[in-house]
Nucleic acid binder design. Structure first.
Lengths: 180, 180
DNA sequence: GTAATATACGGAGACCCTCTCCGCATAGCA
DNA sequence: TGCTATGCGGAGAGGGTCTCCGTATATTAC
């Protein structure tokens, strides 16, 4: 990749993060291109669709989430570790308003890889929590992750209510093993 | 209101229901007007924004939900009644893809009335379930309703997975009193 | 039945958004 | 320094939201 292309790509990603965080669903790809100082054509060459742009951003975050999951495997309380990680996931999902919605949709192969990585991390934490609690927690890990995303989405619908996300997560986690 | 205006209003609402159900977020107000056989100007005179249109549709449904809540107060199991009603709420929220999202947003006075009515019905069912279970269920009714909406939203993100909504609701309801 | 009037209609069009196409510029290389 | 592959950018097509205003019509009074 040519150096100017690389530079533009990076600028576009940075501008997109800002725009998505600020505007949520109302984000405009035009504005992103403008903010990054490139033409719309350049944006669409790098990212053929708004979704591709989102996937690229998400991919950047997934590694961090997986690393956090790895760390949390060493946490003395497996139940708390699971909760902490799900909360981190929710915060990631909330980071840009409306981003979650697209994350939940199709999104292609790149996003599938992200999902697999997230699912793997979540599965390990869930299994450890189950072992700790000595009971099988009858839930599909995918459902649990979707539910966490849904809570993040709902939390973002009322951005002024900062505590809502925590309350919603608490509500969701009532049924988890070794609940506080 | 002039008779032709009334007729057009009704046609617009019917067309809007179809369009929202079929297209979800991709719904086009232009198409709704076209489908209803009126010009765009007519649509915007009756409903100044897409949100106003949604609110009008929602208002139509709320009465039915409240009536269902009333019925369920007579159900022998208060816990089951609560669950059944929350499920009905989720189905309503799912009825048109993406409608939930707007429902969660501001929406003005008309929507506030709807929320109040829903909250009142939900509160009564929740209180009865608590009494039956002999325990106080520490949850804000608003949070519970938002969470149900969030699950409906998540369910609609994967319309091909019909059972997902049920699984997500089950997940949410694990922490409810007298859970099965 | 007809005239007067308030009310509502509808479509042209302004403006913005997404996304494409292609002539032009330039980075990288010999 | 010149060549070429690669990338840039903006004009513009197509469609969406929403407005404005000349035209049409339901309604009322006579």
């Amino acid at each position: 990749m040519r150096s100017d292309a690389r530079r533009n790509r990076d600028r576009l990603l940075a501008a997109a993060r800002e725009e998505f965080a600020a505007q949520g669903r109302g984000a405009s790809l035009n504005r992103i291109a403008q903010q990054a100082g490139v033409g719309p054509g350049t944006l669409y060459r790098h990212f053929p669709s708004a979704q591709a742009l989102l996937v690229a951003i998400i991919s950047e975050d997934v590694a961090a989430l997986c690393a956090r999951g790895e760390e949390l495997l060493a946490h003395p309380s497996a139940g708390e570790a699971l909760r902490a990680w799900l909360r981190a996931l929710a915060v990631h999902a909330s980071a840009m308003r409306g981003l979650v919605a697209v994350e939940a949709l199709g999104g292609g192969a790149a996003l599938a890889e992200c999902h697999d990585a997230i699912r793997a991390a979540g599965s390990r934490l869930l299994r450890r929590a189950e072992e700790e609690a000595g009971e099988r927690y009858q839930v599909d890990i995918d459902d649990l992750l979707v539910a966490v995303n849904a809570m993040a989405w709902a939390g973002e619908q009322a951005p002024q209510d900062h505590a809502r996300l925590d309350r919603l997560l608490a509500l969701l986690m009532r049924g988890l093993p070794s609940a506080g």
